[in-house]
Design a binder for these strands. Structure first.
Lengths: 349, 349
DNA sequence: ATGAAAGCGCTAACAG
DNA sequence: CTGTTAGCGCTTTCAT
């Protein structure tokens, strides 16, 4: 039999339920219950236990709790690139929501590397209760193997069998195209991002459809890295036969484009209108200020975590295996019109 | 006696060292050693164990390992505001370094709230091996109580008794002032950030000293929120009697200032030169591009984590209680000259 | 409603 | 070098 009677063996170590139990004259299991499931213990006793525990400075040890139950109160979020402002607000939304529910976020920055993404997942999965994959570069099947191990929700991507939350890119694109049409443009060039990006595919497709419906022409160049550098290259490529309007895969690319165009003596928006995607930090202070399809960034992070928590069965409480029907949230995008788009002055191309 | 002989009780659950041990005909402790401290076990045996373990798909359970040892391989980083680009590169540097050493980052965004910071710490401390406080808003004494519980390093702050890593603000400020002096300015206005910010205090002090030595005048306005909005207000306040040169607490403030000044018809850099601090994302594409004192952001995150890991005694290995002398790293800042500063045209004020 | 006791999976003396 | 044996601190049947 274990001798639990000794006071916390080394004076400095934190008190355990055994110490509290001894001090209260109850069994350790009662103390455990008093904290883990109030209501399963006499109200008065519970109160007394809390009282004493508080005085002793007792805090339940999350590690010890996690071992038998698996409830670590940790959720992982893996993002393609912490350095990309696109993720700032997403992170905040996720963090906020997780914290409110008593969870802590484990974040992995995988620097756009599939390899790193896989490693991060390997490392984190055993410790977390759930995973949100923000803009994963992995294949659907790789995602599925992760999802088999822990509840998973993907951000900015759609998968038939995995909960997902994404921006309504089609709608956003539609608005952007309409805006350009209103300004008299008859042809639009899409400056593509990485082929591996789900959003890239869907945006291009949506643009083609929208232009078609509105009787406009669609062209496409790329792929380019979704960075300012990528935008610079794109500007070079565009310079030969500049279109009157371009829609870029994302704001980073668009901002690079702005700078590149400007340095080539092509004026925005007089010579060419450009619209970006996401409305990231900086879109409002680049020159000209960028017209862009704003993604509900914070909301995206928030809903992703909410969806996950829901799968986990409520805020850090007992698992209710009620995982409802597969959630697939599509959050609305809105067009933010600023200074980088204008009425077409000359005839299109 | 526990009956460990049964194969993994439920077929689906992951194999444990007991399963591997049984399959290899060795004791569980040997399997444990084979993974935890290779070298303490016969090379061949170890090899065989790894082999079998791999086949069975065994993975050591970090939770179980953590309970008896306290080695969670987790470190916490608490940052004042994930939404502030200042932290992007810091996060990346920290992440990178932690990952290389086999640690995972737990990040808490405390939204500039001391309250939230304290709560985050409470929540994370029991799970992590160490803490890095990036731009903490807490009092020194609050930091000390945290540091008493886990090895801690503070970022962008100096404390006599806690390891710290910061930018060499004094040097950076000196360079900025010299630059302005070179351009013929004889008076500089400091646009202050939050009083609670350690960096704010030190930057202002350094500016006063530098201007004094160079025979220039120093003025100060503020405090302002370290945001674009703050910069906008500052611009309003400055408009009455515009100085020829201002140094802002940070880039965010400086960018807001740029916009505010511009909308008030004050030209930068012709009418007033402005220099920022940190060289955050966006400083190179705002208009005009910002001259700024660049902080070694990524390096800051990296060194902070390295310092912490060092305190923990090597990369996820056994604790060597050799915590050397208190480390206080001061990383060099460099002045990045862009377009927001120019030779003074008229006589100063 | 509460107590007793058996683990969760791994590590760490302590023997041999 | 390897096996034995206690735990780490909490949860959770199963009795009472």
């Amino acid at each position: 039999m274990v001798d639990r009677s000794r006071a916390k063996k080394t004076e400095n170590s934190r008190p355990t339920i055994y110490d509290v139990a001894a001090a209260c004259g109850v069994a350790p299991s009662t103390v455990s219950r008093a904290f883990a499931r109030p209501g399963r213990v006499n109200a008065e006793t519970a109160e007394r236990i809390r009282q004493v525990a508080a005085e002793m400075g007792y805090r339940t040890n999350p590690l010890a709790r996690a071992l038998p139950t698996g409830r670590t109160s940790l959720i992982a979020i893996v993002i393609a690139d912490v350095t990309n402002p696109f993720f700032f607000e997403i992170l905040r939304g996720a963090e906020e929501t997780a914290t409110e529910a008593g969870y802590t976020l484990l974040v992995a920055d995988v620097q756009e590397s599939i390899e790193a993404e896989r490693r991060a997942l390997d490392r984190m999965i055993p410790m977390v209760e759930g995973i949100v994959l923000a803009t994963s570069r992995m294949s659907d099947s790789s995602i599925r193997v992760a999802a088999k191990q822990r509840p998973t929700v993907v951000l900015n991507r759609a998968m038939s069998d995995i909960a997902s939350v994404a921006t309504d890119n089609a709608l956003g694109m539609r608005r952007a195209v309409e805006h350009l049409a209103d300004l008299g443009h008859v042809s639009i060039t899409y400056v593509a991002g990485p082929d591996a990006s789900w959003a890239n595919g869907i945006r291009w497709r949506a643009m083609r459809e929208a232009t078609q419906e509105l009787g406009m022409r669609a062209r496409r160049i790329g792929p380019f890295a979704p960075t300012q550098a990528g935008g610079l290259s794109a500007a070079g490529e565009l310079a030969a036969t500049p279109p009157t309007a371009v829609i870029a895969y994302n704001d980073l690319l668009a901002i690079g484009l702005l700078r590149g165009l400007s340095s080539l003596g092509i004026r925005v928006p007089q010579d060419v209108s450009v619209v970006g995607f996401d409305n990231i930090f900086g879109a409002d202070f680049c020159t000209p200020q960028l017209t862009t399809v704003a993604a509900p960034l914070r909301q995206l992070g928030k809903v992703a975590v909410q969806t996950l928590l829901n799968d986990l069965g409520g805020p850090a409480s007992g698992r209710a295996v009620s995982r409802g029907p597969l959630k697939t949230a599509l959050l609305p995008a809105r067009l933010v019109i600023r200074e980088s788009t204008a009425r077409v002055e000359a005839l299109a191309e």
